[in-house]
Design a protein around this nucleic acid. Structure first.
Length: 855
DNA sequence: CGGATCGAC
DNA sequence: CTATGTCGATCCG
């Protein structure tokens, strides 16, 4: 990729020279890394800042050391068990892989600096940075050659590059430009997610579908040179051209990596252009592929703002983000939506490139011999023993190339009562739909309000007869909302988030069949427990194994199977105020059962299984019988389907999982989080929630009150990550290499992912491993064994004390944390985080993330 | 629970 | 001339 970049760059230089517009003629100017580091070191050494850095570094080293000790104590037995468990998880993840979305990450190139250069021709040829002498937000590419980058103090930058011009930031201007860009983005995804002034994610899946039928003229754009001519500054125009050369000459759009050019379309320049010397007046037609769409977006951005953007196209946000970095500046890159392409891309990807993996994590993992995603995957079992659940699950996802496939709407302040009511109404109907899907009715309606100061209020009202329709719920919710609005009158409520919850569901007496899913859920874990609670046994309920992939399973079912391996007792009763005794009891039962699940599971020999191959339920049969069935199925005609089911099946599951029982639009929420919340909510079985922010407007993110300060003060580094240039590598790691090597060698003798992911070979649907044999029978034997070992028999975990795993389940941690936050107030982090590493990369951590309302 | 830490920008 | 930011989320005792 680097070579591609180089090529582009030299191409650009060439062109610039020919046009006499070269704005970076000094190809050789700048400093080498060694010099850069030396200067930084001199400027830094002895400062308090530096001392503190050293201290922090020691701490990290200490952490690594304890981690290594912990690792040394892990027995191969433990590792094997962990392996099975993690594989199970990997399998689930694999099945949930969703390649059906087209996610685009747009990233403006050196945004602040580019704006300044555009508006002030004098800066054009100079190395510049935006910021102050104490902190820089952005530098232009010219300055970067001197090692001047975002998040660097200006005075050090000056030492690196004495000619450097430091421009104070004009946030209003950036915001205005950002708005222009966002207007364009909204055409492709009205719900796009703006991460900051210069970055956004789009889900263009829908756009792509519609676009297929678009006539050519709808995809045709005229190349304007007018903007700069009209303002009567020819010189400026030239400057612009220099930045614009790629779009002015549409041929240069072809600079994307060759591997992704869909034959179908390449942007075509109208034929007249060829003969027309004034080709600059001509138009371009963009094709209908994702790549073409993104070219179009970038073209329009450049035409409108005279600024360039880079973009990444991929099936999920995590990948899209990495992609946008790849051909920066002014380039784009796509990962085609097939598993193979994803795996190829991931294979050698350094984990540090991934949003969410920072300096420290990188170092810790490096100590374990992990640098690339492949290695991350290979060490998954070990990681599950050394890191918290959130962390290792996150690692696992990364290593499999997974990420969010849906974008959440952003939330801007709503202070008009009218809007608040209509939002509330919207929520109520969404909630009602979910209720209908689950066939539930409830008696308590609760609204939750979070204001711009992050203070949260919940107000509930309970009625005697259960409600379920949107109208009924809204009638109650509206009154609650009105009370709150009136209470603050004449001041408006400045809301950041609103949620509507229904709880106190009817029990089976009243609503037998509606209740079934809950009953089933409660009973599912251990049939022997049924009846001990306040629910009666229902013979129809089935026990769904983790292997089970039935597209029919409801999210309760899903949750139920989840339960088995996440021993969490997430739900905090405090947050469930207002429930009647009955529901609270159910809730307790639920908890108990979930505790019992793990131990009880080994004993269930006669259960209803769902075949992972044909998806049919197999009735109440023994394990052996079930395995025979699977065996048969694998041998049968559905064999080929098995290897292609993943996306389709997962889609279904996803769709199901997507019932938005809890839906936060406040801030960014990703798919995992969303799912998580869905699950958690379903867990306590007593309420369904709808939370929502208002649909994003073009500018929504900017309007977020808490965003302002952030955007204004924060740097928006736009460079690609370049660790060598970090002015922060003061010390090097003490323990490492040999240790790391030996560590890896200790791994259990298993074959792992990447080979497996790369061809048609037989992949066990259970352990997810490629099987060496191509003999079907042998393969089936393996699957058989796997089913017995890994999945159906629940592992008894005797776990090592993980390095950072104080909590039972991070899932619950994350969530209860959020609850706390919601219920109390936002906690101000009082800590003075010292700035760490100058890296750009990735927006909010897709990790778990998320905010969401509610429990 | 609150201070420390991490990561993003 | 000095001089290294702010936020949210998570970890961890």
């Amino acid at each position: 990729m680097d070579s591609t970049k180089e090529k582009n760059d030299s191409c650009k230089d060439d062109l610039l020279l020919r046009m006499g517009l070269n704005d970076n003629k000094a190809g050789m100017e700048g400093l080498d890394k060694e010099k850069i580091n030396k200067i930084i070191m001199e400027a830094t050494k002895g400062s308090r800042f530096y001392e503190n850095e050293l201290k922090k570094e020691k701490q990290v080293n200490q952490r690594i050391e304890t981690m290594m000790q912990q690792k040394a104590q892990i027995t191969s037995q433990q590792l094997r068990k962990a392996q099975l468990q993690v594989n199970k998880c990997a399998m689930e993840l694999e099945q949930s892989r969703d390649l059906n979305n087209t996610i685009v990450h747009i990233d403006m190139d050196a945004f602040y600096a580019a704006v300044e250069m555009r508006d002030n021709p004098e800066l054009k040829d100079k190395p510049i940075a935006v910021g102050s002498s104490s902190m820089l937000s952005t530098s232009n590419y010219r300055a970067r050659r001197f090692g001047v980058r975002a998040a660097m103090p200006g005075f050090i930058a000056k030492k690196l590059c004495p000619q450097l011009t430091i421009v104070p930031p004009n946030f209003d201007k950036y915001r205005a430009v950002s708005r222009e860009v966002k207007e364009i983005l909204a055409d492709y995804d009205p719900n796009f997610m703006a991460m900051s002034l210069d970055e956004a994610y789009l889900n263009i899946t829908t756009h792509l579908q519609e676009r297929r039928n678009w006539p050519e003229d709808k995809r045709k754009y005229f190349i304007k040179t007018g903007t700069s001519l009209e303002n009567g500054k020819p010189e400026k125009k030239l400057n612009k051209l220099s930045e614009n050369e790629r779009s002015i000459s549409p041929l240069l759009f072809e600079d994307s990596p060759p591997d992704l050019q869909p034959p179908e379309n390449t942007s075509q320049v109208n034929s007249e252009e060829q003969n027309n010397p004034q080709s600059i007046q001509n138009s371009v037609v963009f094709g209908t592929s994702a790549e073409e769409v993104v070219k179009e977006i970038r073209f329009r951005i450049e035409q409108k703002t005279t600024l360039t953007a880079s973009a990444g196209i991929a099936p999920n946000t995590m990948l899209a983000k990495v992609c946008s970095d790849k051909n920066k500046p002014n380039g784009q890159y796509q990962i085609l939506p097939n598993r193979q392409a994803v795996m190829d891309f991931i294979k050698d990807l350094p984990i540090r490139k991934v949003s969410g993996i920072g300096k420290v994590t990188e170092k810790m993992l490096k100590a374990l011999g992990i640098i690339t995603c492949t290695e991350l995957y290979q060490q998954r079992a070990l990681l599950s023993l050394l890191f918290s659940e959130t962390s290792w699950r996150y690692f696992l996802q990364i290593s499999m190339g997974l990420g969010s496939t849906h974008l959440t709407r952003t939330f801007s302040e709503i202070s008009k009562a009218e809007e608040q009511y209509s939002l509330c109404q919207e929520l109520c109907s969404e909630l009602a739909q979910d209720l209908q899907k689950e066939g539930l009715k409830g008696k308590t309606v609760t609204i939750k309000l979070k204001n711009v100061n992050f203070e949260v209020k919940t107000r509930a009202s309970t009625v005697s007869s259960a409600v379920s329709t949107a109208e009924e719920i809204f009638a109650l919710a509206k009154e609650l909302l009105r009370t709150e609005i009136d209470a603050d009158f004449p001041h408006p409520l400045r809301l950041r988030l609103m949620g509507v919850r229904l709880s106190s569901f009817l029990n089976e007496e009243d609503k037998k069949h509606q209740q079934r899913s809950i009953v089933g859920f409660l009973q599912a874990g251990d049939p022997t427990l049924s009846g001990t609670g306040c629910v009666e046994k229902n013979d129809k309920d089935q026990f769904l194994k983790p292997v089970e992939m039935s597209h029919k399973r409801s999210f309760f079912d899903k949750k139920r199977s989840e339960k088995k391996w996440s021993h969490q007792d997430t739900v905090k009763c405090e947050t469930v105020n207002g429930h009647d005794v009955q529901t609270s009891q159910s809730f307790q039962v639920l908890k108990k059962m979930s505790e019992n699940l793990e131990t009880s599971e080994n004993s269930d020999n006669n259960q209803i299984f769902t075949c992972p191959v044909c998806f049919r339920e197999q009735g109440s049969i023994s394990l052996e019988a079930f395995n025979k069935h699977v065996d048969a199925c694998l041998n049968g005609p559905s064999m080929s389907e098995m290897f292609s089911y993943s996306p389709a099946a997962s889609t279904k599951v996803n769709k199901k999982g997507n019932i938005h029982h809890s839906f936060s639009l406040c801030e960014k929420q990703d798919y995992e989080t969303h799912q998580k919340n869905t699950e958690i909510n379903s867990e306590d079985c007593v309420e369904l929630v709808e939370t929502i922010g208002n649909p994003s407007e073009v500018e929504s993110i900017d309007a977020l009150s808490n965003k302002h300060s952030k955007e204004e003060c924060s740097s928006l580094p736009s460079t690609s990550f370049n660790i060598e240039n970090c002015h922060q590598n003061f010390c090097s790691v003490a323990l490492e290499s040999e240790d790391a090597g030996s560590l890896r060698r200790q791994e259990p003798p298993q074959s792992y992912l990447y080979e497996e992911m790369t061809d048609q070979a037989l992949i066990c649907p259970v352990c997810n491993l490629k099987q060496k044999t191509s003999d079907l029978t042998q393969f089936n034997v393996h699957v058989d064994i796997c089913l017995n070992k890994g999945i159906i028999q629940e592992l008894k975990k005797d776990k090592v004390n993980p390095v950072n795993q104080p909590k039972e389940s991070t899932k619950s941690t994350g969530n209860s944390g959020r609850v706390q936050k919601a219920v109390t107030k936002t906690k101000r982090s009082g800590s003075m985080t010292k700035y760490s590493a100058s890296k750009k990369i990735k927006p909010n951590n897709p990790r778990h993330t998320l905010d969401i309302f509610f429990k």
